[in-house]
Write a protein that binds this DNA or RNA. Sequence first.
RNA 1: GCCGGUUUAGCUCAGUCGGUAGAGCAAGCGGCUGUUAACCGCUGGGUCGUAGGUUCAAAUCCUGCAACCGGCGCCA
Length: 460
Amino acid sequence: MKTTVKTLLTESPVDTEVVVKGWVRTKRGSKQVTFLEINDGSCFASMQVILDNKNFSNEILQKLRTGTSVKITGKLVASPAPQQPVELQGTKIKIYGEAAADYQLQKKRHSFEFLREIAHLRTRTNTFGAVFRIRNILAKAVHDFFQERNFIYLHSPIITTSDCEGAGEMFNVTNFDLNNIPLTKNNKVDWEQDFFGKMAGLSVSGQLEAEIFACSLGDCYTFGPTFRAENSNTSYHLSEFWMVEPEIAFGDLEDDMDLAEDFIRYLIKAVLEKGKDDLEFFDKRISKGKLKALEKLADAPFNRISYTDAISKLEKKSNKFEFKPKWGMDLQTEHERYLTEKVFKGPVFVTDYPKDIKAFYMRMNKDGKTVAAMDALLPAVGEIIGGSQREERYDLLAARIKEMGLELSDYDWYLDLRKYGTVPHSGFGLGFGRMVQFVTGMKNIRDIIPFPRTPGNAKF
RNA sequence: GCCGGUUUAGCUCAGUCGGUAGAGCAAGCGGCUGUUAACCGCUGGGUCGUAGGUUCAAAUCCUGCAACCGGCGCCA
């Protein structure tokens, strides 16, 4: 049976013969004995292996460089040193593959920029092992949370012909011979001759499709990749990223915020419970105090403030900002940071934004100026959730579509949901990567996704 | 897209007033009484991002380009 380092360290009885398979992290040699750290990715810790040099040839010992893959058989014993509970007294070694002498990973710290260039090897490091174990815990927790609440998981399409209100530039999907693109009489691209008979692209959001499910099957959610062809160059944007988008049937904005709050706390608790070892590493090496901050957040209610109130709070400190806050303008990053880090010292929902800076599908408030929108802002990462109550009144929705200069005919199916038995409903989108970023404290979103896609970069 | 910064050994970096290159780690060799970022000694390793320019002389000063990083915008 295959045993992992994790089970050997936590479950296996001492003084039994065991087998460990993994990669050599470090070797420390002396005349009599050689120490190896064997890591297999199953947990943060490695297995310390002790080899009595006289039992092995020099040739074998030499091959055990950092990066070499091995199978080691031996006796699991209690360790005399405090750094690890148990260690392995190796008796047999099988080398699967040596690491060539130019292996780029070393025992010392590397820069994340360098590791990004070798994303196929960076998962062998402490940091990236920890990141992707945490990411896995969060992914499972997303499903657990919604499944426990009887939300239906919906696979929204990745290829789409409906542009979700220009949430971002879409990547085109085409089957055309790019050196010979069919043109219409007016010298425009003739999309009718393309694979789907019209212009298609990669989805920027699964929300509109989720609304269809919410207006029939009830509460539902999507969790999948989304794509934005924006030329965004920041540490918190990707061209391909994963988004969680729940949609609540018969729910208003309050329900939406309650769900979002519960959701974030659930995710944090899951990580605190199942990812302790990895979190301790982030707390120590990546973001000091992270563990305490997460523990505090796991039970704290989120603050809530309307956009209008937020603006007047910000206006009082106007001189602190490069961009002067003014009603009608979107909040700048510096404003959001001020709210989370200075005013509330914690997460905050900003609600009821002016209609002109929000999407067409958001529900108009009674004042006729604002819409039932909410953004959840977290310290350090900023906007992690954007959500709203959807406009369920046919006439108002149709009017907004026209007002935004969009074609009614493009949204006929979306309007049908309002025409035939409309219901109030609401939902939000959570940037999964930003959640991983927040939990781990990793500074750059390119370092919490296995293979980042950003403008000019799609290697691996 | 805009603003700023960086680019020197496999990696992380130093290099003063312009005078032709350094350290630690890694690799190789040797030593060492159980190490844990092990330690000690020796060896090999460089077109200083790239293309030009200034100068007797450029890693160093100037210009273009590229890659990367940080901040901003767009958002999740």
